[in-house]
Amino acid sequence: MNEAETKFKTMFVSTEETKAIWILTINNPPLNIITPVFFAEFEVVLKQYFQDREAKILIITGAGDRAFSMGADITEIASIDNAAQGRVLAKRGQDLYDQVENSDKPIIAAINSMCFGGANELILACHLRIASEKSKFAQSEINLGIIPGWGATQRLPRLIGTSRARKIILTGDMITAQEAYDIGMIDEIVQHGEVLNRSMEIAKKIIRNSQFAVAYAQKAIREGMKKSLSEGIKIELDCFEQVCASEDMKEGIHAYINKRQPQYKNR
């Protein structure tokens, strides 16, 4: 992927030198609203990211200082005339955000500013969330007479607990980065302007590891969270069995014993 190869209307997509780290910057000024065009382009990027063997990490951030994204396009919501149209709109977002959550390749949200509504649902589907100290969050759909439709009623309680999630969803109140961190909704707070740099640091740490092992760790966590603890342990057992048969397992152990850096082949 390279910006010269694919042009988008609502985002920039670039890669760092090795092409292992992709950066998707939501660019739909002034508030980086999520529109049907964004969804169409996002679907294209996800497909390319999943298929590209060189791509290891995707970082999603927002352009400018005003917003990571203020969420769904209100005019699109206002155009809903009946329940069936509402279902179509919700299903579109759910399907795309499911692709994010179900990715074996990690996806990091680098939250640079305001993150409301459908955008908050996007970061909940990501695997790690790094936020600027100036960022703010809200699941504000209730203030429009509706409920979240792109996954927040399910992902947020699983992430921070039912009671805390219920308060955020039922009040629509905005919370600060510190409040989001304190309840476990985000993983780190960094100085404003450093969110992308910190996300890149984490991404580089991850890609130094065996991507074969990373994918199975992702699978064990993802699938195990859908099951009881005892069933999840069995999923971990199956995944552990698979990585123990890999070339990377042998390389990792030999490198550790011989005090050298491993040279993983990701298989």
Results as ranks from 00 to 15, higher is better:
Ala138Glu: 00
Ala40Ile: 01
His192Val: 00
Leu46Cys: 02
Ile34Ser: 02
Lys105Trp: 06
Asn2Leu: 13
Glu41Phe: 07
Ile146Cys: 02
Asp95Ala: 14
Ile130Ala: 07
Val195Met: 11
Ser14Val: 09
Gly252Trp: 08
Thr171Asn: 07
Asn27Phe: 14
Gly62Leu: 10
Lys9Arg: 13
Met200Glu: 06
Ile23Pro: 02
Lys204Met: 13
Phe212Cys: 07
Leu128Ala: 13
Arg166Ile: 00
Gln154Thr: 14
Asp104Met: 09
Met1Gly: 10
Ile169Asp: 01
Leu170His: 06
Lys91Met: 06
Met174Phe: 06
Ser69Leu: 09
Asn27Ser: 15
Glu194Ala: 12
Arg222Val: 10
Ile80Glu: 05
Leu156Thr: 04
Met114Phe: 03
Asn209Val: 00
Thr61His: 02
Ala20Asn: 11
Lys204Ser: 12
Gly118Ile: 05
Ala4Met: 11
Met11Asp: 03
Ile77Leu: 12
Arg222Ile: 11
Ala138Pro: 00
Ile108His: 00
Ser132Asp: 05
Lys227Ser: 13
Ser79Tyr: 00
Phe212Gln: 07
Glu236Val: 10
Asp187Lys: 01
Val37Lys: 13
Gly149Ser: 08
Gly149Cys: 06
His254Ala: 15
Glu236Lys: 05
Tyr49Cys: 06
Met11Tyr: 04
Asp248Pro: 03
Phe38Asp: 03
Ala177Tyr: 03
Ile130Lys: 03
Gly93Arg: 07
Pro262Gln: 14
Tyr216Arg: 13
Thr75Met: 12
Val243Tyr: 05
Phe50His: 13
Gly62Pro: 10
Ala119Arg: 05
Asp98Tyr: 10
Gly93Pro: 11
Tyr216Leu: 14
Gly93Leu: 11
Tyr256Cys: 03
Val195Gly: 04
Ile107Tyr: 09
Tyr181Met: 09
Leu229Cys: 04
Thr61Ser: 04
Ser135Glu: 01
Ala177Met: 06
Val195Ser: 11
Arg155Met: 13
Trp150Ala: 14
Gly71Arg: 12
Ser103Ile: 05
Gln51Leu: 15
Arg260Pro: 01
Val37Ser: 03
Phe240Gln: 11
Ile253Met: 12
Ile221Phe: 06
Ala255Ser: 15
Asn32Tyr: 08
Ile108Ser: 01
Glu16Trp: 01
Ala90Trp: 02
Ser69Arg: 03
Leu46Glu: 04
Asp81Lys: 14
Tyr49Met: 09
Gly118Trp: 04
Ala40Val: 04
Gln99Pro: 02
Met174Ile: 15
Asn102Asp: 14
Gly193Gln: 02
Ala4Val: 12
Asp182Pro: 00
Gln51Ala: 15
Ile233Asn: 06
Val214Glu: 08
Arg198Val: 09
Thr35Val: 06
Leu124Trp: 01
Met70Val: 11
Ile34Gly: 03
Glu43Phe: 00
Gln51Lys: 15
Trp22Cys: 10
Ala125Arg: 09
Thr75Gln: 14
Ile108Phe: 08
Glu223Cys: 02
His127Asp: 15
Lys226Asn: 11
Lys234Asn: 04
Ile202Asn: 05
Gly149Val: 07
Ser210Lys: 12
Thr153Leu: 07
Glu179Asn: 10
Glu41Val: 08
Asn258Phe: 04
Asn82Arg: 08
Pro30Lys: 08
Ile160Cys: 06
Trp22Arg: 07
Thr25Phe: 00
Ser14Glu: 12
Ala255Gln: 08
Ala67Tyr: 07
Tyr256Pro: 00
